Each structure stands twice: as C-alpha cells, then as structure tokens.
Simulated assay, not measured.
Amino acid sequence: MKKKVDLIGVQVDCGASKVGASIGPVAIRIAGICEGIRKLGYELEDKGDIIQPKGGASSEKLRNHESVISTCKSLYESTLISLEQEAFPIAIGGDHSLAAGSISATLKHHKGKVGVIWIDAHGDWNDDKITETGNMHGMSFSAVCGHGPDVMVDYGQGPVYADVTKCVQIGGRDIDAEEAKKMKAAGLNVFAIDTIDKLGMQEVMKRAIEIASNGTDGIHLSFDIDSLTPEAAPGTGTKVHSGLTIREAFLAVEMLHESGKLLSMDMVEVNPILDISNKTAKLASELVLSALGKVVY
C-alpha cells in the first residue's frame, strides 16, 4: 500500500433521510483517526472537509439532487488529485451518496480497472425510476456501475463505470424488492447476511477479494457503518437489526489490507447525533486503521 494517505472529510447528509451524518467527519477525527494513521507510519495529509451546498434543486425521485451532485463532483476532483499524486485517498462521511464521487475518480484514474467491495446493510442499487424514498444515498452503487442515475457520476468528465462482474455487495439485509431484481439482472455479486452466516466471513472475504481483484488494478472499499449490528454501531441513520459483528467487520478490513489490493476507500454514515459517547465514530476510525494495517499482535 502507498505510504502517503490523504484524508478527505465529506460533510454531506442531504442524500439521506436524516440529518447528522454531515458531522461524521468531525466525530471520526475526534476519535483519533489522524493520530492513528501517523502512528502506523504513513505520511498523512488531512485535506479538510467538503461541505454540501445549502439549498438547490430537488425532486420527489431525486431528493436534494443539486447539492448531492455538487458534493460528489467536489469529492471526485479531490480524490483524482490524490491518486495523481500517488496517495491513498480515504473519504470519511457523511452519507453514502459520496461514494459516487470517490469511486468515479478511482475508476477514471485506473481506466475502469477497479473492483468494488461494498459492505453495507443496504444494496444502494436504486435509481430515480424504482426508488421508494428518493434518497440518493441509496443509489450510488448503481450509479458507479452505469445503471443510473447517471447524474450522480457524470460531471462532464466522461464517466468510467465499474464492471459489475468485478463488484461485490457484502452484508445486505434490507434490500428493496425492485432493487433486488435490478441487482440480479445486472449480475452483481452479492454475499447477503444469510450467506455470511452459512460460509463465514473469512470465506466470504476470500471470494470477494478474488472477484474484485481478478483482472483489475485493485479494489475500492466502500464501508457503510450500518453494516454492523446496531448494538455495535448505534450512531447511524438507517439501522437494521442482526448485522455484522464487530469481529466480522474487523476481519473483513484486515483481510483487505493483507491482500495488498486496496486503492482507495470510504467510511460512511457515521451520525454523531444518534451516537452514544462517540462509540460509532471510534469504531469507524479503528476499522479504517485496520484497513491500513493496524494489527492486534
């Protein structure tokens, strides 16, 4: 892994149904992520925060779309600069709509040769046609794979889309019916929570890493903290019961580090308003550090 890390905060929550994730980057920094990265021996540049614009156009099927797209475009530009400077970019958020920007940049830089591992309780494969809520944090995975909405990833740069056969969803347990049909039709690789129960997290991650790294330059990890069970991560806006255990989550990021394939990553949906004593932000920080190589022994 590259020895220079760029940390990019993204203060966005207008892609979600609840406010609060916009202050997630502040909470994750308070939890010690910067000190932890430096302690691991990396050169760290904290690039500060991208802040969602206030107001802007909205619609029933694409809520707050002008603000969401503007934020994603800013993250795209910042992430692309990091990659061009041979740094490892980490986006901390912030709702999951931001991944449309970070992943688009990684795909552009690597000419599409990027696998995506998306660890999340949700599929995030909705679009403006099938969405039940209009919340754009539920559309970003679909968008980066070229299955819409294109406005989330097309900033005039000529978007490069991910190859769905190199993309993996892990931990899904709250996926809309039409969304699931769309994911299956597209050929997305899915290891839902019941599959993790049957195979175990080690085997799931082994298979996921093989899928996402086969024929690619490496992997972008997009990690939604709501993938964990709510008892472990209460500070998030779309909690779903019976998620990943803390150890399953750590095993996932530890194996990704050991693979040597990580190119970039997101840590999203930390909502301090809903948290208890910054518990979820601390967990998010530690998961990022483990993805960078922090070990127990």
Rank of each mutant, 00 (worst) to 15 (best):
R207H: 08
D150H: 11
M136F: 10
A177D: 13
A291V: 11
I246S: 01
P272A: 05
K61C: 11
A99S: 15
Q169S: 14
K2E: 13
R38C: 10
P89G: 04
V10Y: 05
K39C: 05
D174Q: 11
S277Y: 12
V26E: 02
I225L: 07
N278L: 14
T195N: 10
K294R: 15
F191S: 04
G15Y: 12
D150G: 04
E86P: 04
D49A: 04
L221E: 13
A232V: 01
D275V: 04
G24L: 12
A99W: 03
G112Y: 03
M152E: 11
Q85W: 04
S259M: 01
A99H: 08
G94V: 08
V5E: 09
M267Y: 12
Q202V: 13
N271I: 06
K181P: 07
N189M: 00
P25I: 10
W118G: 08
V144P: 05
S259I: 01
A291T: 11
K294V: 13
E179N: 07
L62M: 01
S59P: 10
E84D: 06
A21Y: 05
E231P: 02
G101A: 10
D275A: 03
R207E: 14
E84L: 08
A91H: 12
K129A: 12
E132M: 04
H122V: 09
I37T: 06
S78N: 14
G32H: 04
E248V: 06
G218C: 03
A185R: 02
T71C: 12
A180G: 02
N64F: 11
M1H: 10
S104A: 03
V68F: 11
T280M: 00
R29H: 03
K113D: 03
N271Y: 06
Q52F: 07
L188T: 00
H109C: 04
K108S: 12
L40M: 06
D124W: 08
L251D: 06
D150N: 13
K279V: 02
D194E: 13
E132H: 07
G158W: 14
D154F: 12
T131M: 00
L7H: 13
K111C: 03
T165A: 06
